[in-house]
């Protein structure tokens, strides 16, 4: 779970066996943040900036295709908060944003949904959603 504290994050990730270098650049998080109804407001709606949210499920093939690309974007684009919502575990968030097909990727700007993309897209197209 993302705590917002750099130390806690480092500790968590260390236990997962990764190295510090892989973890952070300039104190930003490097892996996509998993959202729940508890943290959605704080992490996305109240976030001043750009957040990219990937709605996915474990049984969805195209989502598995997009998953690693989302992680790459999380690692490379430290100016964007990259998040994931598991639609099986968080049906309320998916319902609120009319997610009816996955993967759906919604880019929020200052808490407002700005762009919606449905289906597995290659990296260049996902990056274009951010521009």
């Amino acid at each position: 779970m993302y705590t917002g504290s750099a130390d806690a994050e480092l500790k968590n990730s260390r236990s997962a066996g990764s190295t510090d270098a892989e973890l952070k650049i300039g104190g930003k998080r490097m892996a996509a943040l998993h959202l729940t109804t508890e943290n959605f407001r704080k992490e996305v709606l109240e976030y001043e900036g750009v957040a990219m949210v990937d709605f996915w499920a474990s049984w969805c093939g195209p989502c598995q295709m997009v998953g690693p690309v989302i992680e790459e974007i999380a690692a490379e684009r430290t100016d964007v908060k990259v998040c994931k919502v598991n639609v099986d575990e968080q049906p309320d968030i998916a319902g609120k944003y009319n997610v009816m097909s996955i993967p759906t990727i919604i880019v929020f700007k200052n808490g407002e949904p700005a762009t919606v993309s449905v289906g597995a897209k290659p990296k260049a197209e996902l990056l274009a959603l951010l521009s």
Binding site: C60, D88, V99, M100, S101, I102, V118
Partner: peptide, 17 residues
């Protein structure tokens, strides 16, 4: 409406309905 009600894959999107 694709992904907003229209789907081409029932096993993929059925659960949303």
């Amino acid at each position: 409406y694709t992904g907003r009600g229209i789907s081409y894959c029932a096993t993929c999107d059925g659960m949303f309905f």
